[in-house]
């Protein structure tokens, strides 16, 4: 089944849902392994919010695809070439600083994206965004809190946080580079012109980074095409694990 050939609004919903699912999945890998119990619980909350958000996008997409398509078809039966998430969110967890850098960069973008999406001309999408914006705002505070604490903590944490920012920054440009899916969404009034979010993102991130006694290095953006289904090698493994059970027992329902 090729889901990406349908209605362009479905493609856009898949793109949004895939970001949420893949990042939520990565965060859920921390469960039981966090640096302290309190943070373990906090990371699970982020994961719960994001996987929950993915479900909402997929449910809406499934309704529009019809023909008995469900959220689980969309999550479990598309290959990595059909996933339309940003390459940033599929990056492996690394150490806690890596996870927070990835989270912080995405959260800052997510808040701006949802803020625009709540005024979407697609009323159902706008409703999802309104609720998610509250959660994303909280996520952004949480990751910013950690960027500041790690950046301005010990020498070791400063070094690790610095390295993590440098490692993830080259993935950021993709967030603000419109792919076909973004262009259609913008033309139809469903979503923002992603390039227009860049300035606010820089401001938001710059403020926190300065507070953290860190700086954003100058990096060349990577050539990334996640929104066209071309991913880093790690997504294949993530999906292989995530999708293993339904694919091993295709006749079963759970």
């Amino acid at each position: 089944m090729k889901w990406d050939t349908c209605d362009p609004s479905v493609q856009y919903l898949l793109h949004l849902g895939d970001d949420a699912l893949v990042l939520g999945h990565r965060l859920s890998e921390w469960c039981g392994h966090g640096p302290i119990l309190e943070e373990d619980i906090a990371l699970s909350n982020l994961a719960l919010d994001l996987v929950g958000l993915a479900r909402q996008y997929y449910q809406l997409a499934a309704q529009r695809i019809s023909g008995g398509c469900t959220e689980d078809h969309l999550a479990y039966w598309r290959s990595d070439r059909e996933f339309l998430n940003h390459v940033l969110v599929e990056q492996p967890n690394g150490d806690f600083a890596d996870t927070m850098a990835r989270q912080f960069f995405f959260d800052a973008f997510h808040v701006l994206q949802l803020d625009a999406l709540q005024h979407s001309s697609d009323a159902e999408l706008a409703a999802i965004a309104r609720k998610a914006l509250k959660e994303a705002t909280y996520h952004a505070q949480h990751s910013a809190d950690w960027v500041v604490r790690l950046g301005d903590g010990t020498e070791e944490s400063h070094r690790r946080m610095s390295a993590a920012l440098a490692r993830h920054l080259p993935f950021v440009e993709e967030l603000f580079t419109a792919a076909a899916v973004d262009r259609v969404a913008f033309e139809r009034g469903w979503g923002p012109d992603v390039a227009s979010l860049r300035a606010s993102w820089l401001e938001l991130v710059g403020e926190v980074v300065a507070k953290a006694a860190l700086s954003l290095p100058v990096v060349a953006p990577k050539l990334l095409r996640g929104k066209q289904g071309i991913h880093s090698e790690s997504l294949g493994f993530l999906l292989a694990e995530m999708q293993s059970l339904p694919r091993a027992y295709p006749d079963a329902t759970w």
Partner: peptide, 8 residues
Amino acid sequence: MALKNARD
């Protein structure tokens, strides 16, 4: 952080 952890 205490406030945030408490919420979580």
